[in-house]
Structure formats: structure tokens, C-alpha cells
Design a protein around this nucleic acid. Structure first.
Lengths: 165, 165
DNA sequence: GTTATTGCAAATGATTTGCACAAGG
DNA sequence: CCTTGTGCAAATCATTTGCAATAAC
């Protein structure tokens, strides 16, 4: 885990007068032990493997805390459960491409997209605070060769797959 | 209501072997009588004003049908209820800006943004099927003059406001 | 010692579903 | 008629909450 995360969290906890508990430490460790997206229930399962006692409620509450601290972001993948993305601390302005063939989620960063949307925003009289782009796309290799290579995807960070809403 | 909508719906109903019912007609009329975003429950209320009998279940089921027919799109405004946008038939590739000061939703279309994200998508080996951009932004007029003018917003189409998730 | 935090179970709230009856084609 | 659609109420499912017990600081 990036040490900057622990620092940012400690500062948040101090500033808000919160407490460092073993449950929170454990949940935070699990959350940032991988760069994959996850749902609350998936996280609960992972946490339970480390420690059989932590409750579902505490997992949900800790997720809320991490979102408030801006260490975790909720993203919309069109599913009924909320998806959490732990990679915004490392890549503060990345976006998501969802492959409609295999469901894979690819993260991408692009300064030009950022600039272009910011221009539109300014023209409308606003100041960008945050943006999220979801691109739903089909795999060209699959269409041409009948095989979904996942070549690019494995080189990049996002790699989730789940049922649609 | 744009007559193209009725046509597209009729063709969908024919193709799928569905039936034209009075409830569906009524719901569709209400859905496309305005260009505002809405939730299932809001639609249910509006439909009930026209006709006291139509059930909540039928409203939900008809919404599903309209989404499948691509006459209506679900959009993510970060709320617990699904928001529906009836304007994609007229503006097939528009996006949304949410004012964090007043919650107003402004729709915008921008060819350059579309081109730029499509470039990124191609570079990753995919073919864009659909994209959705949500820009959360603050009102500059409010910051500078202490007044949120809503000047631009009223000239444009999106105009919703609701509690956050 | 205070006050925040936890676990449990119950509550919530949006959406979906099973089923018997109604109504399109 | 035959099958799809409807209304109702119950079911589902993710998430939130009240509360008594527990643990930080």
C-alpha cells in the first residue's frame, strides 16, 4: 500500500476527531492491498477471511469514511451494487472503459479528454470539480479475430467483471 | 412528442411481438411530454394524475421496455434512485454537468469530447458503443457574485434537482 | 471517564416478482 | 382462444440505523 494513503487517512482521522480501531485498520489494509474494484459485499468477504469477527455494518461504515476522506471513490458500472475504486489516490483523474464483450474494466488517463471537457464546462459558466467518464466499447480483436486478447487490459489496472443491473 | 419516438416504439413492439395497451400508451405519453429527467416514482406520480389506476409495477415494467427499445436511457446522477433521461432520441450523444452548488443538471453536446474519447478508446483496441460523461462542477457566477444565475441552465434542457445518495 | 465505535438485528427503500385475472390480436 | 399484460401484495437485495455493549484516548 502506498504510504501516502495511511498518512492521508491519519490526517483525516485526526482532523475529524475519529479513532483508530483494529477493525478500521484491517479493512483499510484489505481495501488497498489490491488495485481492483470491488463491492461492499466482496470487501466484507475478503475482510472476513482475514478476521472472522468484523461485522458487515462496520465494513459499510468504513467504506463511507474512506469515501468521505477521498481515499476511495464510488464509480458507476451500471450495476445494482455500488462499486468502489481504490486507485484514485495514485491516478487522481482516471476514467473507465467497460468492454461489453467480456465485462472487463480498463482504466485510462488522458489529459486531452480532461482539457476538452474542462473547456466545455468553462464555456457553460462552471468550474470543474470532478468528472467521470464511462466508455462502453466492444473489443476489436474479438470482432476481427474471434478472440478477446485482454492484452492491453492486463497491462493496465482496472480488471473487474460482474453482472449488469 | 417527437413522432419519431412513437414510430420507433411501434416498430419495437411489432418486432418483439408485444402489445399496445392503454397503460403503456399513457405512460409513454407522460414520459415524453417533457424533456426533464425523472425517477420511476416521480413518473408514477405523474401517471397517476392522468389516470388513477395504472399500477406502480406497470410503470416499472414499461420503463424497462423503453430502455430496452433505447428510447429512454438510465443515467447516473449519484442518487439512490435510478434517473431516466428522455432526451437521447433528440440528442443521441449528449452528456451531463451537475452543479454542486444547486444540483441543477445541464445537458451538453460536444463533438470534440466525443472525438477525443473515441481516440483513446481506439488506441486501447476497442470500438466505442456508448459513452457517458458526468461533470460535477461549481457555479462561477455564484463564486464571483454570490448569485447562482441559472442563466445558461434555463436555456438548456437538463433541469433536475434531488438529494444525493 | 468520556465519547466514538462496534455488532447485532431490525428497518428501510427502491425495484422485482409470482400469481390470478383481464384484455389485446 | 391463446398469449401477453396488469394489479396487487409479497419478496428481494443492498444498504442503513437504533441500541446496548465495548474499546479508544
Amino acid at each position: 500500500m502506498d504510504s501516502g494513503i495511511k498518512e492521508k487517512l491519519d490526517e483525516f482521522i485526526r482532523r475529524k476527531g475519529l479513532r483508530r480501531t483494529t477493525q478500521r485498520e484491517r479493512i483499510v489494509d484489505v481495501v488497498f492491498s489490491r488495485d481492483e474494484h470491488f463491492t461492499a459485499e466482496e470487501l466484507f468477504d475478503r475482510v472476513r477471511k482475514v478476521d472472522g469477527d468484523t461485522s458487515r455494518a462496520t465494513v459499510y461504515r468504513t467504506l463511507g469514511m474512506l469515501v468521505e476522506a477521498d481515499l476511495l471513490r464510488q464509480i458507476d458500472l451500471g450495476e445494482s451494487q455500488i462499486t468502489y475504486d481504490p486507485n484514485f489516490h495514485d491516478k487522481p483523474s482516471h476514467n473507465h472503459l467497460v468492454c461489453i464483450d467480456c465485462g472487463r474494466v480498463v482504466e485510462f488517463e488522458d489529459g486531452n479528454v480532461d482539457i476538452q471537457t474542462d473547456c466545455v464546462t468553462r464555456r457553460l459558466g462552471f468550474k470543474t470539480v470532478r468528472q467521470s467518464i464511462k466508455v462502453e466499447a466492444s473489443c476489436e480483436q474479438l470482432r476481427l479475430n474471434g478472440v478477446c486478447p485482454n492484452l492491453i487490459a492486463t497491462r493496465l489496472s482496472g480488471k473487474r467483471l460482474r453482472k449488469k443491473r
